[in-house]
Design a protein around this nucleic acid. Structure first.
Lengths: 210, 210
DNA sequence: ATAATATTTAAACAGTTGTTTAAAAAAAGA
DNA sequence: TCTTTTTTTAAACAACTGTTTAAATATTAT
């Protein structure tokens, strides 16, 4: 894995890169500043020199990760003027491709909200675009009003679309062992969801409720 | 939350109960044996007296949690002779009701598979009934062969059924803040999934693939 | 009752971890 | 060059954490 990220020219950036990787993988309690220092090839004192404390360093990484994650979820909601099915397709597809680049992010965010919820709430407050106000949500409401699709609470649609994707990434080590889905298999598995999830949602939305 | 679990008469059991709660909530690195001792109202030395080490105590909790979680997932797969839709309904419903009693379990299991995968693999090996061999899986295969439902890989069905449920429980602190789903709202939200998920799966399965 | 065993306690130990200090080395400015 | 500032280092500090010890207390068996 080492070598993928660009070599940072300055010490501060090198520390931040290593810290980000380790904090994201191992969480706050599981990450030791001596490990960060060693992997970055610098003296431990430099971590405090540049970032004042472990907690400050962590908070800056946490903020960065939150922004990335919010971006992954938000960026795809308001694309061009397209059909509902197409919009859902692109949402799923873009979310999957985004998370492929940062597969540890969903677990990190969920994990931190459990351990560190006050701080998370503070920095998360402005980051999340309301799903309710997205073009996708408006389209759902509109088409339900016209009788084209069934009525359903928006939070359920949001959850049904995102949770299989997010859960796939969070459960990678689990899938590898229990279902023997690993490496290239996982990529196949997750890419197949690009078709399945939108089809499933649309099949459900087109069904009239009893 | 205190007081829900029965007061243990003997010290060993009291330690185990507190340890289970804390380990499940905070993970291995986040749980301090002094916290366990204090909450159990015993001397720290007793933890080592009864369990030899923090790691041994942890492993016994981990095993217990794995068994509970496997039980939650397995128990509901092989019920009586019922229709496919009914079977999926009961599977979802029982899974949800089971996880309501142990809402921290999904996160714990996923978390431990990430941090501690070798040990998890060792103790998880015999615990999981293969979904492929369940009555639900056989019914899916059978009805697909008869052309009643579309053909789909079993692992996808398993994933689509379980992931929204499991994700709901893992994301509780997240949902509380971002979507303002909390307390009784969460119970409503999760119970609504008992109807939605089976309906959605069935709508999808009944659709013929393009 | 007495001895043997099991349980509990306070205290100390050794290793780890985040942090600080004071001096050295490097870089920048005059 | 010489001074000042910035960066880096080795070492020590203090708090924390898992573990052990040896003595005290309670329980059980004879």
């Amino acid at each position: 894995m080492a070598g993928i990220t660009h070599e940072a020219d300055n010490t501060e950036e090198k520390i931040r890169q290593v810290a980000k990787r380790l904090f994201t993988e191992r969480g706050f309690a599981g990450t030791k500043i001596r490990d960060v220092a060693e992997e970055a090839g610098v003296n431990i004192a430099l971590l405090n020199y540049y970032f004042r404390s472990k907690e400050r360093l962590y908070e800056s990484i946490l903020t960065e990760n939150f922004e990335e994650y919010a971006k992954a979820l938000n960026d795809t909601l308001n694309t061009q003027d397209i059909t509902l099915e197409e919009r859902i397709c692109r949402y799923v597809s873009q979310l999957i491709d985004h998370l492929k680049l940062t597969p540890d992010l969903p677990f990190f965010i969920i994990s931190e909200f459990r351990n560190n919820s006050d701080f998370c709430k503070k920095i998360a407050s402005n980051k999340w675009e309301k799903f309710d106000e997205s073009a996708l949500a408006k389209q759902l409401t509109e088409e339900a009003k016209e009788g084209k699709i069934r009525k359903i609470e928006l939070r359920h649609v949001e959850h049904l679309i995102t949770s299989p994707v997010i859960m796939s990434f969070m459960a990678i080590p689990f899938l590898e062992h229990i279902d023997n889905v690993k490496g290239k298999d996982f990529l196949t598995f997750i890419d197949e969801q690009k078709d399945i999830i939108p089809e499933m949602i649309m099949a459900y939305l087109k069904t009239t409720a009893e």
